[in-house]
């Protein structure tokens, strides 16, 4: 079943916490991965790979660049999840 935006954000929060050690409650829609959450370009690849597994989506390298905030990623997953 497709995940809701709320579920996606909660899932991303767990993933970011696991990969970058950021408290899950800091992971909110308007937060920028690199500027606010200490997720650098390589950690971002790990976040994307984990999100692909969890939400059954494909996020190609070319699209990763456009996912600046948690909200960008949540919207992308909402739109593309199988």
């Amino acid at each position: 079943m497709a995940a809701t935006q709320e579920e996606i954000v909660a899932g991303l929060a767990e993933i970011v916490n696991e990969i970058a050690g950021i408290p899950a409650e800091d992971v909110q829609l308007d937060k920028s991965f690199t500027d606010d959450l200490d997720v650098d370009s390589l950690s971002m690849v790990e976040v994307v790979v984990a999100a692909e597994e969890r939400f059954d989506v494909k996020i190609p390298d070319d699209d990763v660049k456009n996912l600046k905030t948690v909200g960008d990623a949540a919207d992308y997953i909402l739109k593309h999840q199988a």
Binding site: L42, V45, V48, D61
Partner: peptide, 12 residues
């Protein structure tokens, strides 16, 4: 190399 593509393949 395409660093990000290699990194993704390697870790996953």
């Amino acid at each position: 190399q395409e660093g990000q593509a290699v990194f993704r393949w390697a870790v996953f």
